[in-house]
């Protein structure tokens, strides 16, 4: 390898890094309540109206937008490297990158749309 083009990886890496912090700080408590304690009936779930009011608060919308967007890109970047390294699919690098980051982009669009219409 000679002195060549520097990689554009920093753009996805910084999104991965921000998402990594958000996943670590916030996702465990989300899945703990919405995925386990509420459905299992161990904690009383707030009503539909309460949940709707919570999500409609402007700060909650901003929070959910940041959380979901960065987490989508975090997952996309890591799923890509998992498929390249753990599953050794290096020959499919371009397709995998397109699907992962493309998927994150689609996720972001849905996030914006749902948060605006909820």
């Amino acid at each position: 390898m000679s002195a060549g083009k520097r990689s554009n990886e920093p753009i996805v890496w910084i999104l991965f890094g921000m998402g990594g912090f958000l996943v670590a700080f916030f996702l465990p408590v989300h899945v703990l309540f919405y995925g386990l304690l509420f459905p299992a009936g161990m904690v009383h779930a707030p009503s539909y109206q309460q949940t709707l009011a919570l999500v409609r608060h402007p700060l909650a919308r901003v929070y959910l937008f940041a959380l979901l967007t960065f987490c989508f890109f975090h997952a996309a970047h890591r799923m890509r490297s998992t498929m390249l390294d753990v599953l050794n699919l290096r020959h499919l690098n371009t397709v995998i990158a397109f699907l992962c980051y493309g998927g994150a982009l689609v996720g972001t669009v849905f996030t914006v749309w749902l948060l605006m219409t909820v």
């Binding site: 989300h30 919405y34 709707l52 799923m79 490297s81």
Partner: peptide, 21 residues
Amino acid sequence: ESSSFFVAYFCVLTLVQLAAL
């Protein structure tokens, strides 16, 4: 590294929840 698949799953699940809400 496999945690990423569950992150993606849970984000999609949250979108489904928002759509239902």
